[in-house]
Computed example of a mutant assay.
Amino acid sequence: MAGLMNFKHSIMLMQILGQISLCMKSSQGADNWVSEFSSEQNQSGLKEKWVDEFSKLNMDDWAEEFSGGAFGESSADPWADEFQNQLSASKSSGASRGVYVFSEMNPYVGHPNPMQEGQELFRKGLLSEAALALEAEVLKNPDNAEGWRLLGVTHAENDDDQQAIAAMLRAQEANPTNLEVLLALGVSHTNELEQGEALRYLSRWLQNHPKYGALAAPHQTDSPYGPDVVRLFNEAAQMSPEDADVHIVLGVLYNLSREYDKAIASFKTALQLKPQDYSLWNKLGATQANSIQSADAVLAYQQALDLKPNYVRAWANMGISYANQGLYEDSIRYYVRAVSMNPKADNAWQYLRISLGNASRSDMIAACDSRNLDVLQKEFPL
């Protein structure tokens, strides 16, 4: 299966945010399954927090950690205020969740073949331009499931899972059983802390698969229980050990339950079957980073970049891994590279600002806040 969505970096900014591990946003009923997997870590005395897989800080946790004076800063620090303001804005926009927001100015509207143009731009790694071309395509052909799917993939790689989910939902409307779309939705909902939705889409992937559909009863896809979903996918892996996609889903599921060693093993198995999948190398790196293996994560991200040099998310993830190791000057260079490729990557700008502070480069914070790429690229060449 080609074109799988990429996994965002589950970061553990130990130097910046304290101990963090990947779990899902708490919810009701079957979603409580994740707690079964976390008791060992809780018993160790670690204060567990979740920051999603690459780019958007869990702003409640960040502000709480930062205002707690962990770095000698007062609770009135403007960074904490800034993140609280962004949190409030993100909560107030929840009503539009799942609704795709088109760009106001789009030079590709009226293009004779925007789909082909979008595919070519995506191949070149020009993701922001590719998104515009693909928006022109779906405006022209609203029922083009593949156009919506590729638009969702583009947004996911460009660090915007909310737009990715909105596009994928439109793709699912046009083709409800598309396996790539169902798997992509499962991954993006994982990135967005939405455990219940992630489990539902991954269960639907299994139910609609021609080989594994018999494993999943229809009612199990309505409110799936995490350990049951893991068990079914392990059965699928025994049926078809050569199916990389099954191992990829298991890696995602083990991230949900914070069983990082198993997640790493699953992604490594998948990579033996799909060694040229740059997004899979990124998934492996994200999981290694969350398992306090930042040096290994750097190697995985480098593999992703070797395969796709214009992979914005991997550039930013590399910055996060260096920040995890306290190498803030190095992390700054990777963040600057990421935002230079996608100036709309708000979360990468946030991480850049944090690393500038930790690297005692407050002289560059104004350039960061004004998004002055010329100044930043000149000061931090890579």
Rank of each mutant, 00 (worst) to 15 (best):
T287R: 00
A286M: 08
A297S: 11
S294V: 05
D296M: 06
N282K: 12
L307K: 03
Q293A: 12
D296T: 05
Q302C: 06
W281A: 07
Q303V: 01
A297R: 04
A295E: 15
L284K: 02
K283L: 12
A297E: 00
P309D: 11
A286W: 09
A289M: 15
L299P: 04
G285S: 04
A295V: 13
A289T: 14
N310F: 10
T287V: 11
Q288K: 10
I292K: 15
P309A: 12
G285I: 02
K283R: 12
S291T: 04
A286I: 04
N310L: 11
N310Y: 11
P309W: 09
S291M: 05
N282S: 15
L284Y: 03
N310D: 15
I292V: 15
A295M: 12
I292P: 14
K308S: 13
W281D: 05
Y301G: 06
P309G: 12
Q293D: 07
L299D: 13
A289F: 09
R313S: 15
S291Q: 10
L307Y: 05
N290Q: 11
A304T: 02
Q303N: 11
A286F: 08
N282V: 12
Q293C: 03
K283M: 13
G285A: 09
Q293V: 00
T287N: 00
V298T: 10
N310G: 12
K308Y: 09
Y311P: 06
A297F: 03
A295H: 13
W281Q: 10
Q303W: 02
Q288P: 08
L284H: 02
T287W: 02
L305T: 02
A300I: 03
K308L: 06
L307D: 03
G285P: 05
Y311N: 12
A304N: 03
A295C: 07
W281M: 03
T287A: 11
V312G: 07
G285K: 01
A300K: 00
N290G: 15
Q302Y: 07
D296I: 01
S291C: 07
Y301Q: 08
A314I: 04
P309S: 12
D296H: 05
N310H: 13
L284R: 00
S294N: 09
L305A: 02
G285N: 01
A295N: 13
R313G: 14
D296R: 06
